[in-house]
Amino acid sequence: MTEPKRAPPPVVQDLFPLTGACLAARDIVTEACLCWGLPQVVAPASLIVSELAGNVVDHAGTIMTLKMTLLPDHLLLSMCDGSYLPPIPRRDTTAPSARGRGLLLIEAVSADWGYRLDAAGKTVWATLKITASPPAASPAG
């Protein structure tokens, strides 16, 4: 009898609210996704955590905690910070700024997203549906 696959432990990493936090978050997510055999979610997961980290840098200015949890059919990505201000997607598409659309990008690429407040601040989370990787192309011959 084969033992059921166990989910790997969550990846948890604190990041400082500096410009390099977005790159660090992308690197952490990329490494975890590849280690977990999920190359197909590297791009959307990297986009999500980059936007989440950028929002903390731009708006909260507190230490943030990135957490990745592999669920049976979803990848849960979350970012905790010390601010109690809720995230508000900017729906005004006529604004001249190219910034401020991160939550709309997260909404577009994730299966679901939201936030929760707690005693320490807030957590913004997003899920990605895990689909099987396309089969590798066989060499011509």
Rank of each mutant, 00 (worst) to 15 (best):
residue 7 A to C: 02
residue 109 V to K: 04
residue 59 H to E: 03
residue 120 A to C: 03
residue 17 P to M: 02
residue 119 A to H: 10
residue 9 P to E: 13
residue 21 A to E: 13
residue 24 A to W: 00
residue 1 M to E: 08
residue 141 G to I: 03
residue 98 A to W: 12
residue 130 I to G: 00
residue 31 E to C: 08
residue 93 T to D: 15
residue 33 C to T: 07
residue 66 L to S: 06
residue 80 C to D: 13
residue 69 T to S: 14
residue 68 M to V: 13
residue 83 S to P: 04
residue 84 Y to T: 01
residue 115 Y to C: 09
residue 126 A to Y: 02
residue 138 S to P: 03
residue 13 Q to I: 13
residue 103 L to C: 07
residue 13 Q to M: 13
residue 140 A to D: 04
residue 123 T to V: 15
residue 59 H to A: 10
residue 79 M to K: 08
residue 75 L to E: 03
residue 29 V to R: 06
residue 53 A to Y: 09
residue 98 A to S: 14
residue 106 I to F: 01
residue 131 T to H: 08
residue 8 P to C: 01
residue 64 M to K: 02
residue 14 D to Q: 15
residue 129 K to P: 00
residue 117 L to C: 02
residue 17 P to S: 10
residue 37 G to Y: 02
residue 19 T to E: 15
residue 130 I to T: 00
residue 37 G to R: 09
residue 137 A to T: 15
residue 122 K to T: 06
residue 4 P to V: 09
residue 130 I to D: 02
residue 92 D to W: 00
residue 5 K to H: 10
residue 13 Q to S: 11
residue 107 E to I: 03
residue 95 A to L: 14
residue 137 A to M: 12
residue 23 L to D: 13
residue 109 V to T: 13
residue 99 R to N: 11
residue 131 T to I: 11
residue 29 V to K: 10
residue 29 V to D: 06
residue 11 V to R: 13
residue 73 D to C: 08
residue 103 L to S: 06
residue 139 P to F: 12
residue 22 C to S: 09
residue 36 W to M: 07
residue 67 K to M: 12
residue 106 I to T: 07
residue 101 R to W: 09
residue 103 L to R: 00
residue 17 P to R: 06
residue 20 G to W: 08
residue 5 K to W: 02
residue 29 V to F: 04
residue 63 I to K: 11
residue 37 G to H: 06
residue 104 L to P: 00
residue 29 V to A: 05
residue 38 L to D: 03
residue 60 A to R: 03
residue 42 V to L: 02
residue 74 H to E: 15
residue 28 I to C: 14
residue 34 L to S: 01
residue 96 P to A: 13
residue 54 G to R: 07
residue 16 F to W: 08
residue 54 G to Y: 01
residue 41 V to A: 09
residue 79 M to P: 09
residue 62 T to Q: 03
residue 94 T to F: 06
residue 20 G to C: 06
residue 68 M to G: 01
residue 82 G to R: 02
residue 109 V to P: 03
residue 112 D to Q: 15
residue 42 V to I: 10
residue 46 S to I: 01
residue 103 L to W: 14
residue 55 N to W: 04
residue 10 P to E: 00
residue 41 V to G: 03
residue 131 T to K: 01
residue 21 A to P: 11
residue 78 S to Q: 15
residue 46 S to V: 06
residue 104 L to I: 09
residue 25 A to Y: 06
residue 63 I to P: 00
residue 33 C to L: 05
residue 9 P to Q: 14
residue 127 T to Q: 13
residue 109 V to F: 15
residue 80 C to T: 14
residue 138 S to G: 08
residue 122 K to N: 11
residue 85 L to R: 11
residue 101 R to L: 11
residue 129 K to H: 10
residue 134 P to G: 11
residue 130 I to L: 15
residue 86 P to I: 12
residue 80 C to P: 00
residue 48 I to R: 08
residue 14 D to H: 09
residue 25 A to M: 06
residue 14 D to S: 14
residue 141 G to Q: 02
residue 22 C to Y: 00
residue 39 P to R: 08
residue 49 V to Q: 05
residue 111 A to Y: 14
residue 39 P to N: 07
residue 92 D to G: 05
residue 62 T to F: 07
residue 33 C to G: 06
residue 110 S to G: 04
residue 20 G to E: 11
residue 106 I to N: 10
residue 13 Q to P: 01
residue 21 A to F: 12
residue 39 P to W: 07
residue 98 A to D: 12
residue 121 G to I: 05
residue 90 R to G: 05
residue 15 L to V: 09
residue 30 T to G: 12
residue 51 E to R: 04
residue 28 I to M: 11
residue 25 A to G: 02
residue 127 T to E: 15
residue 67 K to R: 15
residue 113 W to F: 15
